[in-house]
Design a binder for these strands. Sequence first.
DNA 1: ACCGCGATGTATCGCCGCGATACATCGCAC
DNA 2: GTGCGATGTATCGCGGCGATACATCGCGGT
Lengths: 212, 212
Amino acid sequence: MLELAVLGLLHGSPLHGYELRQRLKATLGTFRAFSYGSLYPTLRGMKEAGWLCEDDGNADVVAGAPPLTGRRGKVVYKLTAEGKERFQELLAEAGPTSWEDETFGVHFAFFGQTDPEVRVRILEGRRSRLEERRESVRTTLARTRSRLDRYTLQLQEHGLESVEREVRWLNELIETERRTAPPVAPRSPASHPPRSPASHPPPQPPRERGAP
Amino acid sequence: MLELAVLGLLHGSPLHGYELRQRLKATLGTFRAFSYGSLYPTLRGMKEAGWLCEDDGNADVVAGAPPLTGRRGKVVYKLTAEGKERFQELLAEAGPTSWEDETFGVHFAFFGQTDPEVRVRILEGRRSRLEERRESVRTTLARTRSRLDRYTLQLQEHGLESVEREVRWLNELIETERRTAPPVAPRSPASHPPRSPASHPPPQPPRERGAP
DNA sequence: ACCGCGATGTATCGCCGCGATACATCGCAC
DNA sequence: GTGCGATGTATCGCGGCGATACATCGCGGT
C-alpha cells in the first residue's frame, strides 16, 4: 500500500526519502500521512525486492568529506525496470483491497495512469463498500435512535451524512467515467465514427501532468 | 483511547467482550472499529490496573460441565470504583490528544457525561486542528493546482470539502454549546423560576440514556 | 434423534504504521 | 562565526488490525 504510493511517486521522477514524504503528504492529502517509521523500512524492502535502486545522480559529494561518521549523504531512490513493471501490475489489480478506506485514496491518486475499466471497477467497489456501511449505520441508528444520548446521536448522524456525501461523490465520478469512456458508445461524440470502438483508448492516456 | 471507550461503555452497564465490541462498533460508528486483538489485551491491562473486575453475575453455569477443556465461560467485565474514578479523570482532561482524529470521536460519544466547559474546549481544539489542516491543504493546493493531474486534483478538493464540512459541523456544535451553557457562571437554578429562562431547547442537562 | 451451521464468545499472533527520537548537514540571518 | 530552523536518514517501542483458533449455543432441516 505504501509500496504502491512509493512506486507511483517515483514513477514520476527519482526522489530522496524526505521529499518522498512531502509528496506523500501533499498527494494523498487528507488520506493518511505516513511517517518515516514506515517509509524507510518500506524503501529498504523494495530495494531488496529489486523494485528500486539508489541513484546518487552525480557524486558531487566530496568523497572523503566526513570521514568520522558513517558517511550520511542524500540517497536518491529511482525505479528499476522491474519496479515500473510492478507498478503497472499493482495499478491493474482491482481487488477488495483496492477500496478499503486507506488504500482507495492511493489508488485514486494514480488513476491518471490506470486503465479506465479498472478505474470504474475500483470506484464501484468503493461505492458498494460505502453503501454497505451506510446501510449498517442506518439500521442500527433506526433501531437505537430512541435510546441514544443527544451527542451519540449527533455523532451517528454526522457520520451517516459523511458516508452519504462520499457516495454521491463516487456516483458523480462513475458517471463521468462512463461518459468519458462508455462501454458502448451511446452516441458519436464527433462527426467521425470512431476508429477505435471506444472500449479501449490505450494509446491515449487521459491528460497527465508534467509537461504542459 | 480504547481505554476511555471501554470505561465509558462499561460505565453504563457490565458487559462481556463480545457485546462490548458490538457496542464499540455501534457507538463509535464511522470512527474506528477496534478488533479483539486490541480489545482483549486492553481489557487485561485494565483489569491489572484495577479499573475493572470480572463479574460472573450469577454462576448458573454448571460447575463441572466441560471438565475436558479449559472451561471457557462468559466473562463479564464491570467497572470498579477506581475505574469510575479513572473515567471521570479521563473525561475531564482536554489535552491535544483529545482532538486527534481517532480520539475525538470517543470523547464526543461521552459528552453526555462530560463537563460543559470541557466539551467546548475539546470542540474548539478539534476545530482549530481541522482549520490548520484545511489551510495546509488550501495552500499546497493553490501552489500546485496547475501541476496536478485531474484525479489528484479531484481527490484534493474532495478532501478539502470534507474538512470544511466538518468545521461547519463543529461551528454549529460550539454555537449550540455556548447557547445552552453560556460562559457566565450559572446562577443557582434551584430557586423559584420553575420554567427555564430565555433559551429552552429540549435538553438542559445532558439527557442521558439508560437508567432515568 | 441427529447433524450442521451460523451466531455468540474468548483469546492470540504476526504485521505494519505511527509518533518520538537521535543524529547529521546545510543555508541564512544576526 | 554562531546559532537555529529546514533538510535529511534512520530506528525503536507501542499499539491497533486482520486472521485465526477454539469453544458453545440455538435453531432448522431431514
